[in-house]
């Protein structure tokens, strides 16, 4: 059973991972998507639903871990909208 503290921690971990995308568009999308998904389900009270979303969040975290690593392995020039000095991790 996922507690609200666990949910909050998952949210933070997901966002932290999202920032690690080297690709600007994927990074911005991941941030937006994570933020909006948690916001959308903010008022959720059914324990079963919370658990199922929490579990899919855990899967997403693992997927983000893999995909951000790949994004950091294959890098391209920064886009014209990206400030150059911003992304030091």
């Amino acid at each position: 059973m996922a507690t609200s503290r666990q949910v909050l921690s998952l949210y933070k971990q997901l966002l932290e991972k999202a920032y690690k995308f080297d690709n600007y568009n994927f990074r911005e999308y991941a941030k937006r998507k994570i933020h909006d998904s948690f916001k959308e389900h903010k008022g959720l009270s059914g324990q079963e639903q919370i658990n199922s979303l929490y579990n899919s969040g855990i899967d997403s975290l693992a997927q983000l871990q893999r995909q951000t690593s790949i994004s950091q392995m294959y890098t391209f020039e920064k886009l014209v909208v990206e400030p150059l000095d911003k992304h030091h991790h």
């Binding site: 568009n25 020039e77 920064k78 886009l79 014209v80 909208v81 990206e82 400030p83 150059l84 000095d85």
Partner: peptide, 14 residues
Amino acid sequence: ATRDESQFGTRPIY
């Protein structure tokens, strides 16, 4: 419209 190249990247927006 191209910003200062020393501060921004050069890859075009898709």
